[in-house]
Amino acid sequence: MKDLVTGLLAGKVRPLAKAITVVENDRSGKRELLKEIYPRTGNAYLLGITGPPGAGKSTLTDKVISKLRQQGKTVGVIAVDPSSPFSGGAILGDRIRMQQHALDDGVFIRSMATRSHLGGLSKSAVDVMHLMDASGKDVIIIETVGVGQDEVDIVRIAKTTVVVMVPGLGDSVQIAKAGVMEIADVFAVNKADREGADKLFSEIRAMLDMIKDKDKPEIFRTVAVDDVGIDELVQGIFAHGDKVVETGLIQKKIAEKAESELRAYLLDSIMERSTTMTDYDEIVKRVADKQITPMDGVDEIFAGLGMTIKES
C-alpha cells in the first residue's frame, strides 16, 4: 500500500491504475488509501461532460483532451458507461473515441461502469477523481453516462459542467423541463452542421433568457468529429472557471461537494449497518406482509442500531 501511495503521488501510471482498482473494489484498502492521499487533493480542474446518449460526449472529450495537451496541461479522464441491470456486466466503449491519446504519458483514461448506481456516475467516480488529482493531473474530465433528464450528480462534483446537446431530440418543451438542462455552466450544441442545430441553439438561448441571473451559461456550436468550435468551447470552459473563482462561488461549490461526498458515505454506512446489524430481512418481510409500514420499519431498524428516533 505504501508503494502504491508513493508511486501514485509521483505521478506513475501503474500505481495510479492499481489504486483505482482498490478504490473500486476493496473497502478496507480504500479507507487507508484515501486517508493518505486526501490531503493532497484539490488542485485539479474538475470538468464534467454530460448529455444524452449519442450526443457526442466521448468525441468531444477526445478533442478537448487534444486542446488541453496543446496548452501543456496533463489530463485525467473518467469515462462512465452503464452496467447491465441483469448480468451486472458492462461494455465500456467511450475509450474507442480517445485512443489517439493512448500513448501520451500526459493522458490517463479510465473507464468505469455505473454498477447500478443512479445519478449518471459510478459510486467510486469521485474517489477515482481524488486519486487522479493527487497524482498531479492538471485537468480531470468526468464523462457521465448518457443521461436522460434527472441524472445530475456531476454538478455537485465539477467546477464546470458542460451539457452537450444535439439537434433532433425533441421540441421546445423538452428544453424547458427541469433537470439536466438546468445544470449547465456551458452548453455545447454538437453536430451543429446538422439540420435543426440553429433552432436548438435559439431554443436554448430563449430558455436562458428567462433566467434572471446576470451570469448565463454560454452556448457554443461544435462539430466534434471535425474539430470545429472546440477552441472556443475550451476558452468558454476556463472563462467559466475564472468567473467561479472571482465571484467566490468556488467556496460554495467546494462545501457542496464535501457535503455530497459525506452524504454518500453516510447513506452507504447506514445501509450496511442496517443489513448486517439488525433483523433487516425479517423487517422487509413484515413490510411485504403489510404488518408494518416502511416508515415503521425504519424506526425498528434504527432502534436495532441503538439509535433513538425523535418525532419531528
Binding site: 452496467s83 447491465s84 441483469f86 448480468s87 451486472g88 456486466g89 458492462a90 461494455i91 465500456l92 466503449g93 475509450r95 474507442i96 485512443q99 493512448a102 473507464s111 461502469a113
Partner: peptide
C-alpha cells in the same frame, strides 16, 4: 457482448 452477459466489465477499443 457475451462477456458482458456473463457479468464481466469489458473495455472495447475498436
Amino acid at each position: 457482448r457475451a462477456l458482458r452477459d456473463a457479468g464481466m466489465e469489458v473495455i472495447y477499443t475498436g
